[in-house]
Design a protein around this nucleic acid. Structure first.
Length: 327
DNA sequence: CACTTAAA
DNA sequence: TTTAAGTGG
């Protein structure tokens, strides 16, 4: 059930970071941050990351650890933040809220029982992107001179739009497969993990399955998206076959005598989302490292040794870039 | 979301 | 072979 089904349809290829030299990637900030929050908090005691005022800002560590990869490979990120929440996504958000509450209950029980390992695991699952996390992330990115764009609605949709129409933007950076439905020409996955990034090719995917963009969206809706459950019995194979046979979603639904609530609106969420061209970013990035470092270690009381390495890597990479300009 | 396993 | 459902992260 759901979005990962798209992986089976997507045309993916491994790329080397070397191939991305000088390119620009619009990163879905929420997606990227979430990745770091759930991994950096995993095996550690959260006390380390809590300030004297009780704010949990381990996102700052994630940002410092995650950014060097971009600098070192001369891949310029534009972080795209979410704006308002989409009405149709309320159901999913409600579901997540319920799960989180369940985990939080279990977490309390584990803490009372003194089960540290269990507690740490549950802790990772209760991570949420608070306002403080968003604000401090923006502040730090600002000090590091990393371009930021505020999306009117979904960050993913905005990033995909930018990759589609802005000549300066080469890829979307996201782990989600939705960017395929949003028409992002190229999506880079696994930018946070150890190995090579994975490149997802939109046009090649359409060609591979002989589908139009609209038809691919219809396939996605049949399998299930963030906004709907999909049709029972429909996975990627069956959905592609059915859409090709009946032309579009409406044809399939008629043939199956089925109904998907808000299908037309869900379709529009992918084909014509709420996005803007009203942004401007300076892609010439020159970070103020000492300001950034004191922001993280002094203002937010992150232990210096947690971020030293990351800052040093950024320093080395930017100095190297400065040298390159003279050669 | 990735991976595994069960079921059809 | 394809989907469904569960688990861990």
């Amino acid at each position: 059930m759901g979005n990962a089904d798209l992986r089976q349809l997507a045309v993916l290829e491994d790329v080397a970071f070397d191939d991305l030299d000088g390119d620009v990637v619009a990163v879905d900030a929420h997606n990227w941050l979430y990745r770091y929050l759930t991994t950096t908090a995993k095996f550690t005691n959260d006390n380390v990351y809590t300030t004297s005022e009780g704010e949990e800002v381990h996102n700052l560590i994630g940002v410092v650890q995650g950014l060097p990869k971009f600098f070192e490979n001369d891949l310029t990120p534009i972080f795209v933040f979410d704006g308002g929440v989409t009405e149709l996504k309320e159901a999913e958000i409600e579901e997540r809220r319920e799960k989180r509450e369940e985990y939080e209950e279990r977490l309390e029980e584990a803490l009372e029982a003194g089960e540290a390992v269990e507690a740490a695991k549950l802790e990772a699952r209760t991570q949420r992107l608070t306002d403080v996390i968003h604000e401090t992330t923006r502040d730090l990115l600002d000090l590091l001179d990393v371009p930021v764009v505020e999306a009117p609605a979904e960050g993913e949709a905005q990033a995909s739009h930018m990759a589609r129409v802005d000549d300066d933007v080469d890829y979307v950076g996201s782990e989600d497969y939705d960017t395929l439905l949003l028409g992002a020409p190229y999506t880079l996955r696994q930018l946070t993990s150890k190995g090579n990034p994975e490149l997802m090719d939109f046009e090649a995917t359409l060609e591979e399955h002989d589908l139009t963009w609209e038809q691919l969206v219809d396939v996605g809706i049949l399998c299930g998206t963030d906004y709907n459950d999909g049709l029972s019995g429909y996975g990627p194979k069956t959905a592609v076959k059915a859409v090709r046979e009946h032309g579009d979603l409406w044809g399939v639904l008629e043939a199956e005598d089925a109904y998907i609530e808000y299908a037309d609106r869900i379709r529009a969420m992918f084909l014509d989302p709420d996005v803007t061209d009203d942004y401007d970013v300076d892609l010439d990035v020159s970070p103020d490292l000492s300001a950034a470092e004191s922001y993280v270690t002094e203002e937010w009381e992150i232990p210096a040794d947690e971020v030293e390495r990351g800052f040093q890597r950024i320093r080395d990479a930017t100095e190297q870039a400065g040298l390159d300009e003279w050669m």
